[in-house]
Design a protein around this nucleic acid. Structure first.
Length: 419
RNA sequence: GUGGGUGUAGCUCAAUGGUAGAGCGCUGGACUGUGGCUCCAGUUGCUGCGGGUUCGAUCCCCGUCAUCCACCCCA
């Protein structure tokens, strides 16, 4: 084979594409009724905005970005995530001057140079939503409720909402200090990765999967016990609102978000059907990022859904059924074929999906094709029919057959003809 | 970046140290103007690539590439 898609990127074909479309259509409808408007963000951005927002401690910025100089020597990066662009957009267009909160969603491909595995590609799609300008817990609750409704509407029941508060600039430093003190004593006993994490991002030690590390970190200080009063109140209010709405969630004090900009509320939606990469969506508050980008001090919260993972779950729970044509017109002979074209256009102008044979072949093979592509009706036009100005119709699902005027193919769909 | 599994027909997979087969699919026929069921025929391969061992390698060995899974990181 001469050419193939690059490592970690893939073509999305029928029938899978119909699951993608269903997911996107439903998500847009759900976002819309919560007042989120779509924004279309560029796929390339100045490298700075990702370095600034995501933080240099994660591998995303350190080694996973598709970064290149453009022809003028500027450093350009294929976006590895959407929030940075959304914040840049919010600040650039002065959207803080519009009534708060401003709520947006976006969708599109993201790029990270990683080793592919189950649920992870180098080009992957996210749908994300962001709400700017409210620090009130009611919007945290609403975002989570919206996401919950989306999964419910997609028929995905076996997902788990995990929730945590990771504090703010007031309380996190003290907690971090506390935590590093705890790890420091027996640092040599932890796995090599955790020893690295100790200096780069000690919070990450909390979700190490190595058995020994899990054992060692028992009794580690919990972030929940170190929240400042404001964070505590905010988190409690969020929890009470979710409980009021009967949203099922799990508190996970070890839930740490990967990106540096998160504050307070952090959440993930996970599924056991996804392999090691089990987070199908994740998000949280990022109250400092807008200011960091040169905008006014503006609290914000958002999430992103991993679309490949979402579609994988949909695929698990239902067959990707391809839609099928309503009518296949079989024609015998040149003149019949010309008439078939006319009838097809007439049907299509009324929105009816109509297929033609595009070849001169036997009736048998035409009907076989109609059956294979799962058409509902076959219209049959031959020399006899042409002379009489009629056509045969056959319902390929029921086997019913009849005859009607060639000038009014729509009467086939009239219930009177179907008994 | 690290570790492991797998590379044979469009797809799913067999096989043997003597240069390949099945099922599905696709095309056609039996049925000359009626699909699905059945039967028949046809169809696609540098057995990923390069090297080594051997009289001979799809099989054994080395390398390489691709792919899958896991780690790291993360949606």
């Amino acid at each position: 084979m001469k050419y193939s898609a690059l490592k970690g990127v893939e073509d999305i074909l029928p029938p899978d594409i119909f699951l993608w479309q269903r997911a996107e259509t439903i998500a847009k409808a759900v976002f819309h009724r919560y007042g989120f408007s779509e924004i279309r963000l560029p796929i390339i951005e100045s490298t700075d905005i990702f370095v600034r927002s995501i933080g240099e401690s994660t591998d995303i910025v350190g080694k996973e970005m598709y970064t290149f100089p453009d022809k003028a020597g500027r450093s350009i990066t294929l976006r590895p995530e959407g929030t940075a662009s959304a914040v840049r957009c919010y600040v650039e267009h002065g959207l803080n001057n519009l009534p708060s909160p401003q709520k947006f969603f976006y969708t599109g491909p993201m790029f990270r140079y990683e080793r592919p595995q189950k649920g992870r590609q180098r080009q992957f799609y996210q749908m994300g939503a962001e709400a700017f300008g409210s620090s009130h817990p009611s919007i945290d609750a609403e975002i989570i409720i919206m996401l919950n409704n989306l999964f419910a509407e997609l028929g995905l029941k076996e997902v788990r909402f995990e929730l945590n508060s990771i504090g703010c600039e007031t309380c996190r430093p003290a907690y971090k200090a506390n935590l590093t003190d705890f790890f420091k004593n027996r640092l040599d006993d932890y796995c090599p990765d955790c020893q690295k994490r100790f200096s780069t991002n000690p919070l990450r030690i909390l979700d190490c999967k190595v058995e020994r590390c899990i054992e060692l970190r028992k009794g580690a200080p919990s972030v929940t016990d170190h929240l400042c009063d404001e964070c505590r109140t905010h988190f409690d209010s969020l929890l009470s609102r979710l409980n009021l709405m009967n949203i099922k969630f799990t508190l996970n004090p070890n839930l740490v978000r990967g990106l540096d900009y998160y504050t307070r509320t952090a959440f993930e939606v996970t599924s056991e059907h996804l392999g090691a990469q089990k987070a199908v969506a994740g998000g949280g508050r990022y109250d400092r990022l807008v200011k960091e980008f040169g905008g006014p001090d503006t609290p914000a919260i958002g999430f992103a859904i991993g679309m490949e993972r979402l579609v994988a779950l949909l695929k698990d729970s239902e067959d990707a059924a391809a839609p099928a044509p309503k009518v296949f017109i079989t024609a015998l002979g040149e003149e019949a074929d010309r008439q078939a074209g006319l009838i097809a256009e007439s049907l299509r102008s009324k929105g009816i999906w109509t297929e033609l044979n595009y070849a001169a072949s036997s009736l048998k093979s035409q009907l076989r094709k109609a059956d294979r592509i799962d058409a509902e009706y076959a219209f049959i036009i031959g020399e006899n029919e042409l002379k009489a100005g009629v056509m045969q119709w056959k319902n390929l699902k029921t086997g019913d057959q009849g005859q009607c005027s060639i000038n009014n193919p729509f009467e086939v769909f009239n219930p009177r003809n179907q008994d």
